[in-house]
Simulated assay, not measured.
Amino acid sequence: MDNVLSFHQGRLPLLISMPHAGLRLSDAVRDGLVEQAQGLPDTDWHIPRLYDFARDMGASVVAAQYSRFVIDLNRPDDDKPLYAGATTGLYPATLFEGEPLFKAGLQPSPEERERYLEQIWRPYHNTLRRELDRLREQFGYALLWDAHSIRSRIPHLFEGKLPDFNLGTFNGASCDPALAERLRAVCDQAEGYSHVLNGRFKGGHITRHYGDPAKHIHAVQLELAQSTYMDEFAPFTYREDLALPTQQVLEALLQALLAWGQARYAR
Score class of each variant (00 low, 15 high):
Q65K: 10
G32N: 04
T43E: 10
E35L: 14
V29L: 05
Y66H: 07
D31Y: 06
R30K: 15
A59R: 14
G39D: 11
W45C: 00
D56R: 13
P48E: 01
D44P: 09
V62L: 15
S60W: 12
T43I: 09
G58Q: 14
I71D: 04
V70I: 08
G32C: 04
A59Q: 15
A64K: 06
D52Q: 13
D42S: 08
D56S: 11
P41I: 07
F53E: 09
H46M: 01
A64V: 10
Q36H: 06
A54L: 06
W45Y: 01
W45V: 00
P41C: 12
W45E: 00
Y51W: 11
V62K: 06
L40A: 04
T43V: 14
D56K: 11
G39M: 12
L33C: 14
Y66A: 09
F69D: 05
V62W: 12
P48W: 00
L50W: 06
V61D: 03
P48G: 01
P41H: 07
R55S: 08
V70R: 01
Y51I: 00
L33K: 09
V70C: 14
R68K: 08
D56Q: 11
R68L: 05
R49A: 07
M57D: 03
A63F: 04
M57K: 12
D72N: 14
D31T: 11
Q38G: 09
H46P: 05
A59F: 14
A54R: 11
P48A: 02
F69C: 08
D44W: 02
Y51H: 05
R30G: 07
H46L: 01
W45G: 00
E35T: 13
G39L: 09
D52H: 11
A54P: 08
I71Q: 07
R49Q: 13
V61Y: 08
D42R: 01
Q38Y: 04
F69I: 03
F69P: 01
A63D: 04
D42A: 03
R68Y: 02
D52C: 01
Y66N: 06
R30Q: 15
Q65C: 15
F69N: 03
H46K: 03
A54M: 08
V62G: 07
I47F: 05
G39Y: 06
G58M: 11
D31Q: 15
R55T: 11
F69L: 07
M57A: 05
F69R: 00
Y66S: 10
R49Y: 02
F69E: 02
D52V: 01
V34Q: 13
R68P: 03
P48F: 00
Y51S: 00
G58R: 14
G39I: 11
R49D: 11
D31P: 09
E35F: 10
L33A: 13
V61E: 08
D72E: 15
